[in-house]
């Protein structure tokens, strides 16, 4: 089972990225390399192995539901590509 151009186009859509036809060709090879890594990993028997997400086990941490100061609005708005007062302006989404 090998990666084809349609797979690259599908993944690009998920990732919201655009590519030229040449770039897509290169990406077919790159995505195929993942299959190579998986073949490697499949050499190991992990039938009875649990997944480890965090490398060092830590307990879940909770905090009190108290309101704390957040970011300064001015600093946040200053970073926005386009703003109107305290709103960030974006293209229309809903018709």
């Amino acid at each position: 089972m090998s990666v084809i151009k349609k797979d690259v186009e599908y993944v690009a859509k998920l990732a919201r990225l655009e590519f030229t036809e040449d770039e897509k060709e290169a990406l077919i090879n790159d995505l195929n390399s993942i299959l190579g890594y998986i073949d490697k990993l499949n050499e190991l028997d992990t039938e009875d192995v649990d997944i480890v997400v965090n490398p060092y086990y830590l307990e879940n941490k909770f905090r009190e539901d108290e309101v704390q100061p957040s970011l300064q609005l001015k600093d946040v708005i200053d970073n926005a590509p386009k703003h109107l007062e305290e709103y960030i302006v974006v293209p229309r989404v809903v018709e």
Binding site: S33, D50, P55
Partner: peptide, 29 residues
Amino acid sequence: KRRIMLGTYALSAGYYDAYYKKALKVRNL
């Protein structure tokens, strides 16, 4: 962009278990 594509592929529906979760099991080993 290349790495985002690799990662998105590894996590996409149908592959998440076989790829990402497999890697996490090997992480345990």
